[in-house]
């Protein structure tokens, strides 16, 4: 199973699409590793400097409809090779969300109110997020501030995370 805890990167925008996560010109790569340096290269977000701001981050926290647009699993892979296996958002585009779980990664939705609170209290601070998959909670910490947030994922999604992805799961079952 992959790691789902670490420093958080806040992307305070709706509708971040997969062309922004990994531009199409890199789709001619045929290894996941090659995508690494280009993660979020074309994102439209004031003041964001991909190569600097992504460093050492393991969790992305963002707004609605993250991962819309192209079906490219390269978006999930570009995250994976940067050691980011968890994205928390108010909502996701269907294909991106499925791609994440299919790779044994997690895309977790939280209610708008909770997301607003997380952004209000933690965005802009050095924030650490710990995932507890047994209790289904995130523990979010920045210096003295701490917030515990419960989340839910379906049994199917959990099975994909536990088994390491959809290929192994499907091949053993169908």
């Amino acid at each position: 199973m992959k790691n789902f805890s670490g420093k958080a990167l806040f992307l305070d925008r709706d509708d971040i699409n997969t062309d922004e996560i990994i531009p199409a010109k890199y789709l001619s790569e045929i290894t996941k590793q090659a995508l690494g340096p280009y993660l979020l290269e074309d994102i439209k977000l004031d003041g964001f400097m991909p190569r600097i701001d992504i460093q050492e981050k393991s969790v992305i926290i963002t707004r609605t409809n993250f991962g819309c647009g192209s079906s490219r699993e390269h978006a999930a892979w570009a995250l994976e090779v940067n050691n980011i296996n968890l994205v928390i958002a108010e909502s996701f585009a269907r294909i991106f969300r499925q791609n994440m779980f299919n790779c044994g990664m997690m895309a977790v939705e939280l209610p708008a109110k909770t997301m607003d609170r997380i952004f209000r209290d933690f965005a802009g601070k050095e924030t650490y997020l710990e995932t507890n998959l047994e209790k289904n909670i995130f523990i979010i910490t920045a210096k003295q501030d701490q917030l515990e947030v419960s989340f839910s994922i379906s049994d199917f999604d959990r099975a994909l995370v536990m088994s390491g992805g959809w290929v192994e799961y499907a091949d053993s079952k169908y």
Partner: peptide, 18 residues
Amino acid sequence: AGVGTTDLEVGILKGVCA
């Protein structure tokens, strides 16, 4: 439906999708 590469891979191998 458009899908990612892993769904495609399982589709090629097993002819199913979730």
